[in-house]
């Protein structure tokens, strides 16, 4: 097991290396110039060139890469072109809102989706099943920002129950923290509820036709125990995989959701950095997201051993 984990961790190094090279090249080859953005409308060519030189953007791409990668290897992510802040500090400030949003979204999605999926499988072909599956199709189809605006209109503007936008740090109070996360998490969870509910239903339907389920029923187990103790546990592997991949999908979702709800997280940071062509920040955030993605995949693989004792590494 430990040898497997070590092998997997070591395997992330070449993956991160490829991501680093790819992101660096994509940015440098794109038609953008952070120096021209910083200099502003009135700047002369000389002034733009001066800024470009200060930022090191006038050097050959290979030299720029060697400098950046050298710093990265020493654990130095560099400094933002714009913010006059270290990237570690910027990411540190932004990580809490994103983690909070991801956590509440996943908890909400799992808490809603699994009972719905189980219910749909248990009542296969009934109107309950059709409603759950209809909702799933809708959840996949409607863009996140449309759901966001609809929820804001209803719960924040019309009913005035929840704030329109913003984020409150957990240290300032759990109540305010949760109040400001409900709408964004609901918005973001719709697609995961759809995904996980569908997967739970399909997976459970397969298990429910197994012999041991019939045996459990024959032994007089109550239906709730049959569903949750016997069937769901054995159907868990594909569900956990989907939940885990959902966390990775969440990365794309937070970019939109954080922008709609003005949450100062890593998603907003990514958007702002891309719009401003803040190369060091974009590079660092994408590397971070890639690392998280790889890590989640590893955790999913390891979690299989919890649900299926036959799986050994």
């Amino acid at each position: 097991m430990i040898a497997y984990v070590l092998r997997r961790v070591l395997a992330t190094i070449p993956v991160m290396l490829v991501v680093a090279v790819f992101v660096f090249l994509m940015l440098r080859l794109s038609p953008a110039d952070p120096a021209a953005i910083i200099a502003g409308d009135s700047a002369t060519t000389e002034q733009v060139a001066e800024i470009r030189s200060r930022l090191g953007l006038d050097q050959p791409i290979l030299s720029q890469f060697v400098i950046w990668f050298g710093k990265l290897a020493r654990g130095d992510l560099g400094e933002s072109f714009f913010f006059k802040k270290s990237i570690v500090e910027l990411i540190g400030e932004r990580i809490e809102p994103t983690l909070s949003l991801a956590f509440v979204t996943i908890v909400l999605a799992v808490a809603i989706a699994i009972p719905l999926g189980v219910l749909a499988a248990y009542r296969q072909g009934s109107w309950v099943d059709r409603i759950v599956m209809g909702f799933s199709v809708l959840g996949f189809s409607v863009p996140v920002f449309v759901i966001g605006y609809l929820l804001i209109y209803l719960f924040a503007i019309k009913l005035g129950w929840l704030p329109v936008q913003g984020y409150q740090r957990i240290a300032q109070g759990v109540g305010g923290w949760l109040e400001r996360l409900i709408l964004p998490a609901l918005t973001l969870s719709v697609i995961y509820v759809a995904l996980v509910a569908r997967m739970t239903r399909t997976s459970l339907l397969e298990v429910l036709s197994e012999d041991y389920i019939r045996t459990a029923r024959a032994k007089g187990q109550i239906e709730l125990k049959v569903l949750f103790r016997h069937a769901l546990k054995n159907a868990a592997v594909p569900i956990v995989t989907v939940v885990g991949l959902g966390v990775a999908l969440l990365i794309g979702g937070v970019v939109v959701t954080e922008s709609v709800y003005t949450i100062p997280g890593l998603g907003r940071l990514t958007v702002d950095a891309v719009l401003a062509r803040d190369y060091p920040v974009i590079q660092a955030v994408i590397l971070l997201f890639s690392f998280v993605y790889v890590l989640i995949n590893l955790l999913i693989d390891l979690s299989y051993t919890l649900f299926d004792p036959r799986i050994r590494y």
Binding site: V164, Q165, T262
Partner: peptide, 18 residues
């Protein structure tokens, strides 16, 4: 100075008194 990049959201926040 609140950084609300989405104009529609800024208007919503103003209408809601935020």
């Amino acid at each position: 100075w609140r950084a609300i990049s989405d104009q529609q959201q800024a208007v919503n926040a103003l209408l809601a008194g935020e």
